[in-house]
Design a protein around this nucleic acid. Structure first.
Lengths: 125, 125
DNA sequence: ACAATTTACTTGCAAAATGCAAGTGATTGA
DNA sequence: TCAATCACTTGCATTTTGCAAGTAAATTGT
């Protein structure tokens, strides 16, 4: 049972007491918030995340979903449709990220040329 | 003239047209937003960033400052006090990140135990 | 029934980023 | 003058990515 990546990554201790630093420990990378974005957009299954235009690698996706679950932002439940498959849904804590996502989106739209808003994020799905 | 790290990292093309993804290409890592946080807190010199409690490595700091300047979020000017030294200041574009930082801070305070707000970020310095 | 396809992940490995310590070269300050 | 400080750079081991390929169970087609 070799564990190549991420899976067993016992998060040791916070870098500081700063809420920004601690939040960045949870979602400070290039992929986590994109998965959260997709969750807000109503996606809930593995293949749906893979289909997103950024093309996340499947190992990274598996790792990020696992971390999100571990950190309590996402809850996974066995999918009714398919045995051995899970559906992922944001928890209350995860849904609390909406303002963060919105602020990032607005900054991108205002400051990065070529970006465009595809879909409207539902306030409370 | 060996270039070990970061410096020459020709950002090729955006992963997608999504404003969230494109913004994450600029500040999607564990350090960039912490430097921005410090800039909002009024820090402007190398040693001030190094002093922050998270303990950024000096090579990472140099790389992040360079990237922030390249992306137009920060402007560097020769420091009057010290020759060969620069002071770093947020540009308008960089200051536009205040809502992002605020949202992240609020989420951290509300959801991560042990975090606390140290200083109040000035709305418009 | 049973082979082919699809779904949901894992695994392996090369390439890049990170973290740490130590080094460099100007510049004050005593 | 000469040690201490400041602003970075460099080297290198460790960790994280990114890509391609593999696997095992379930579903679909015939």
């Amino acid at each position: 049972m070799g564990d190549t990546m991420g899976g067993t990554m016992a998060k040791s201790h916070p870098r500081s007491v700063c809420p920004v630093a601690c939040t960045l420990d949870v979602l400070g990378d290039k992929w986590t918030l994109l998965v959260v974005r997709d969750l807000f957009a109503g996606k809930s299954h593995y293949h749906e995340f893979v289909k997103s235009p950024e093309g996340i690698a499947t190992n990274i996706l598996a790792d990020r979903l696992e971390r999100l679950v571990k950190n309590g932002l996402v809850k996974s439940q066995p999918s009714p449709a398919r045995v051995g498959s899970f559906s992922y849904v944001l928890t209350e804590k995860g849904r609390g990220l909406l303002p963060v996502l919105e602020a990032i989106k607005q900054w991108g739209l205002a400051n990065i040329r070529g970006t465009e808003a595809r879909l409207r994020v539902p306030s409370v799905p």
